[in-house]
Nucleic acid binder design. Structure first.
Length: 289
DNA sequence: CACTTGACCTGTCCGC
DNA sequence: TGCGGACAGGTCAAGT
């Protein structure tokens, strides 16, 4: 799915596009994609206005004026797309990557009183949207366990190390992907960060040196910041809140570059399987031992 | 307990 | 062209 940079890009877009708008209706098209009672929806979503749009890890949070929030996880193929009331129909400039909405992947439609819409699309139906009291968000199991935000100013190298060390017998890539260790890293940026740090994804955490930790810490943060600047990665489904693709993969080092020369040393980039995920490495730059 | 694998879904691509 | 299997940005439950 959308990893931290993609969700952050969507957050920024929604912050500009929907804050202050008032919800006229919420229409779930697939039951498991929208988790809320009809009573809660009519009492706390209908006629509510959008107060703020936040992000924690890969979770998007839309706070409503009623002290309820729409909490959204896009998983692998979720999209949140805004359409103004003039935007319908093919050929309109803001209808960029996808055509008219709703389409067959649309799972929830939110209509605002000004006639604009927010569409929750999700090809694979893994993602969800739930309406819960804002104060309850911190009690969600995921929120209880999720690790620190890697881009926060108070996230230090020491904190990074300490959280990794609890996973001593894991492979480094598995630890990076583990949301209870640090928040927001997914398959694309794990591979990119490991390449940048010159660390092989199958190294056990307990073998990491201080220099490895420094390199990983620096590269996770660098990669995430760069990816936000590039507005995320579009490997297949990802688009931002206006339907535009992300540009990070144009300059990726190794992700989906198998068979191509390493930008660092020219060795052919390989694709292997680590922690059950497709994994891209330069076998020369990222030595296993 | 710590760590790895399968399941959840739909769509696409690749080999036979 | 058809069909089966592998794979896809994530996370949880169940397995070892």
């Amino acid at each position: 799915m959308p990893e931290l940079p993609e969700v952050e890009t969507i957050r920024g877009g929604l912050d500009r596009l929907i804050v202050g708008k008032t919800i006229r209706s919420v229409t779930p098209l697939v039951e498991k994609s929208y988790q809320a009672s009809p009573e809660d929806t009519s009492n706390f979503a209908i006629n509510a206005s959008i107060a703020a749009v936040r992000r924690r890890a890969k979770v998007l949070i839309i706070d409503l004026s009623t002290k309820y929030s729409l909490v959204i996880h896009l998983k692998m193929t979720g999209q949140i797309v805004f359409r103004g009331d003039q935007d319908f129909g093919a050929g309109h400039p803001t209808v960029s990557m996808i055509g008219e909405l709703p389409d067959r992947s649309t799972r929830v439609i939110i209509e605002f009183v000004d006639g604009s819409h927010l569409f929750f699309n999700d090809q694979r139906k893994f993602g969800w949207m739930k309406l819960i009291p804002t104060v309850e968000i911190q009690n969600l199991p995921f929120m209880q366990k999720v690790g620190p935000e890697p881009l926060e100013d108070d996230f230090t190298l020491e904190q990074f190390k300490a959280r990794f060390k609890r996973k001593g017998r894991s492979k480094v890539k598995a630890a990076l992907l583990d949301q209870t260790v640090i928040a927001g890293v997914g398959n694309i940026y794990a591979d990119e960060s490991l390449f940048g740090a010159k660390v092989h994804p199958e190294r056990l955490v307990e073998t990491l040196t201080d220099q490895d930790y420094q390199n990983l810490y620096d590269n996770v943060r660098y990669t995430m910041k760069l990816a936000i600047k590039k507005r995320g990665s579009t490997a297949k489904n990802y688009i931002d809140s206006e339907g535009n693709r992300g540009n990070y993969l144009d300059t990726a080092w190794v992700f989906r570059k198998e068979g191509q020369p390493c930008p660092n040393c020219g060795t052919t980039i390989e694709k292997i399987r680590v922690a059950g995920r497709g994994t891209h490495i330069c076998p020369s730059c990222q030595a296993k031992y």
